[in-house]
Amino acid sequence: MTSPWFESPADAEKQLAAVGYLADTATATTTYLAGALEKPLLVEGPAGVGKTELAKAVARATGAGLVRLQCYEGLDEARALYEWNYKKQLLRIQAAGDQAWDETHDDIFSEEFLLTRPLLTAIRRDEPTVLLVDEVDKTDVEVEGLLLEVLSDFQVTIPELGTVEAVRRPLVVLTSNATRELSEAIKRRCLFLHIDYPDSEREREIVLSQVPEVEERLAGELVEVVARLRGLDLRKSPSIAESVDWARTLVALGTGTLDEDAIAATLGVVLKHHSDHERAVEELRLRTR
């Protein structure tokens, strides 16, 4: 089977690596299959392991456009799909004067007054598109119903305009931090990929690829400390992005070794809660200034 996105899992791994995303075999294979089978990809895992970045990397690697729907509690159809420009419609009604209502109605419910939101935007694009539905677990159950409708047929019915059907199906990536269980209906329609924190060797490779200025030995020391921090009972464990930021910080400071003083002075780069900072200082027996 030939995918319009990647030629094979190996090709997916190679192209993603070329844009700075080091994917393991499972990630590369599932990403390839999402394109080949034209099925949405549900990516689950703790915050900061590269779920969102995977969708961005696919877009960069393939030259596709990226359309992002950031989910949050209270997200509704108008913000996810489309809404009408009511202010502009009102002005047109006022300007219409004595024009018959049927004519005015047909006028104001036209493309000119339609405000497309991410889901409709992705469906209407005829260029290759990656649709990122980010943190889908933060939405209400009603939004899941909307997603089911869109992801089943890749079409949307606008009562005033008719049915809009995708000319070219986007590659859909849904991310979840697993703060709540998603419906089985959503899961059935998706390929599933769980991404966890990488092992030390893979994370060292990621740090070196993103911060080539950092010495390999220092990168190894940094990854070891991050692994120890993730083993603590913290409110928010360090993400991969924060590991990379820490490496950039050490390079900027000209730090050649990650000793206790260096860790204590720069711990705020990777830990963003005071209680986590205190626990790390206690558990790692760091000297504070």
Rank of each mutant, 00 (worst) to 15 (best):
G268H: 14
E242R: 14
R289T: 09
R285W: 07
L151H: 03
W84E: 12
W5K: 09
T157W: 11
D196H: 12
P128A: 11
A18F: 12
L132H: 02
I195H: 00
T257M: 07
Q99T: 15
A280S: 11
L267F: 03
P40H: 04
P4Y: 10
V226F: 00
E83V: 02
D199S: 11
N85F: 05
D107G: 00
I93R: 13
L229K: 01
R285C: 07
E165T: 15
Q210Y: 04
I186Y: 03
R188M: 12
T249K: 14
E213R: 15
E135M: 05
I263F: 01
A36L: 08
V223T: 04
V143R: 01
R289S: 12
P159A: 12
A23R: 06
D98G: 13
D140I: 02
D11T: 12
L146R: 06
P238F: 07
T116H: 10
V58H: 00
L191R: 03
E135F: 08
A78I: 02
Y82K: 04
T29K: 15
L91G: 12
L182Q: 05
L148T: 06
A57R: 04
L69K: 00
A96T: 07
I240W: 01
S8H: 09
D153N: 15
L16I: 12
G20F: 07
T266R: 10
Q210W: 10
D140H: 13
Q210R: 15
R235P: 00
S3L: 10
R60P: 03
E53V: 05
L131E: 08
L271C: 13
H274I: 14
L132A: 06
Y21K: 04
L218W: 10
A47F: 11
G254M: 11
A262I: 06
T129G: 06
L16Q: 05
E283N: 13
G20H: 04
E77W: 09
D233K: 14
P212W: 11
E160K: 09
L147M: 13
F6Y: 09
L146K: 09
E224G: 08
L132K: 01
